[in-house]
Design a protein around this nucleic acid. Structure first.
Lengths: 112, 112
DNA sequence: CAAGTATACATAATTTTCTTATGTATAAGA
DNA sequence: TCTTATACATAAGAAAATTATGTATACTTG
C-alpha cells in the first residue's frame, strides 16, 4: 500500500474480502482491482501482497490453482471453508476497529 | 493498541488529534482518554505511546512541560505551530485513507 | 527489431511500528 | 503490607510493511 504508510495490518482483510466477492483471483488481479476500486489511491506492492497470500494459504484460508494463460503463469486463489469464516471475522473486526477510530477522531460526536 | 494489531500507523495521528481538542495532555492521560472514548476497546500500551510522543517532540510537533502533581511527575505535551498543521494534515490523510478502505470493503457501493 | 511497458510470479534486506517485558517511583486502598 | 493505580521510560522481539532485486513472457512503439 504505497499511497502512504497507513494501515498496516489490513491487507489480509482486504484480500479475504475481495475473495468473498469474487470466487477466484490471482495476485496481479488483486493489485489491479484495489487500484480500480480506490481510483488509483491504493497501490498494493508485490512485496506485501505475495507474502500475505502465502501466509493465508499456509494458514489454510486459501487454496491455489495454477493456470497458464497466454504463455504466462497465473496462480488463482480462492477461499476455503475456513477462509470464508475468517473473511467474515476479519471484516467485522476491522469495521469495529474503524468505528472506534472514528470515536477517537471525532470525540465531540462520541462523548463530551 | 492492544485491541488488535490493526491499523499500525494511526497512533501518532490519534495523539495529534487529541491535542487539537485539548491544549495539554500527559501520556497517561492520553491512554485513559482513548480508553474512555472507545469504551475500553482501545488500550494504548506505554511501549507504543512514549516512543511516539518522543518522536513527535523530536520532529518539532510537540513541546513539553513537566509538572509535579501529588508527588508524581507529569509530562504535559502540547502542539507547536507545526504540530497544529501536522495534526490537520495527518487527520485528513487518515480520513481519506478510511474512505478508500470503505470502497474496497464495500465494492458494491463504490463500483459494480 | 530493439526498447520499454505491462503482465505475473517471487524473495531478501531494511524500516516502521507495534507488543511484551522490564524497570523506577509515588500514592491510595484493602 | 500488599495490590492497584498513577506516571514515566527503555529494550527485546515480532509483525507487516517498503524498497530493491530477480526471473520470465507478451505487447506496443518507434
Amino acid at each position: 500500500m504505497s499511497s502512504s504508510k497507513l494501515l498496516k495490518g489490513s491487507l489480509a482483510t482486504i484480500v479475504l474480502r475481495l475473495l468473498e466477492e469474487q470466487e477466484k483471483m490471482y495476485g496481479y488481479e488483486i493489485t489491479q482491482k484495489v487500484k480500480q476500486l480506490t481510483e488509483g489511491e491504493f497501490k498494493i506492492t508485490e512485496g506485501a501482497l505475495y507474502p500475505t497470500l502465502h501466509k493465508l494459504e499456509a494458514e489454510g484460508y486459501l487454496t491455489t490453482e495454477t493456470q497458464l494463460v497466454d504463455g504466462r503463469v497465473r496462480k488463482y486463489y480462492s477461499l476455503t471453508k475456513e477462509g470464508n469464516a475468517e473473511a467474515k471475522a476479519k471484516v467485522s473486526e476491522l469495521e469495529e476497529f474503524l468505528a472506534n477510530l472514528q470515536k477517537v477522531l471525532n470525540p465531540k460526536l462520541g462523548l463530551g
